[in-house]
Design a protein around this nucleic acid. Sequence first.
DNA 1: CCGCATCCTTAATGATACTG
DNA 2: CAGTATCATTAAGGATGCGG
Lengths: 135, 135
Amino acid sequence: MDDLNIHNLENLDNQPQACAFNADCPTRLILNRIADKWTVLVMILLESETKRFSNLQREIGGISQKMLTQTLRGLERDGLVSRKVYATVPPKVEYSLTPLGHTLKDLLYAIKTWSETNIKEVLAAQKSYDEVSLK
Amino acid sequence: MDDLNIHNLENLDNQPQACAFNADCPTRLILNRIADKWTVLVMILLESETKRFSNLQREIGGISQKMLTQTLRGLERDGLVSRKVYATVPPKVEYSLTPLGHTLKDLLYAIKTWSETNIKEVLAAQKSYDEVSLK
DNA sequence: CCGCATCCTTAATGATACTG
DNA sequence: CAGTATCATTAAGGATGCGG
């Protein structure tokens, strides 16, 4: 695994194919994981405590059962979320962050904080852009 | 604009519809912007210096002209990127981050750093997950 | 050089029904 | 409750050609 195509992102002009900028670099996988519509929301909820499937679905507005399942499976496959099944009737499944998942805490909250801080400015920019486009 | 549905993310159990967890909250727009396949790559390139369209396309492996245009337009609309057209023949268009865009610098680099730091562990987790699934 | 418009293909998501 | 499976729908993306 030491031959992964991971390079320094500095001096990009001298390394046009560096790291994630190379379509074949595995680092792209991480970007595509974070760049998932639901990943951030699911992980922020799991960051504070273990939660059940139905709990997550109730708290995340607009997510379908299919999408939640898909997101959780992807996160589990990436080693960010762990899934614990209780052999009871009815079944009970608990999701939590793995230690690796918890290392994303600061990043997740940075995204949350930036979003909340700058949403108004972004909306204003959109409004302005759209008005100009109408001319 | 003071009536935006932005709430505290703490005590989520008491606020199941808080903020980005509400499908109708505008904060979702920000998540969907960051959760764009190309946003992070484009913005990291523009963070250090102004770049031309063809320059960006050359440096981002795998992005099509259509997707780069679409990403840049979206970022421009959100007030994160500014576009400067030179009325020359042939035309020259320069892209750079706005002051608002620059405020994402730390976040962008946090994503980059986390990705580079943990890519091996994620790949190992995927491999392990896939092997178990085959049984 | 930049990038829009069009057509076409493929991937993502939603809706519904069913199971341990 | 927590899914899986299937089908239908929609959205995303690629390819090509044209125009400022």
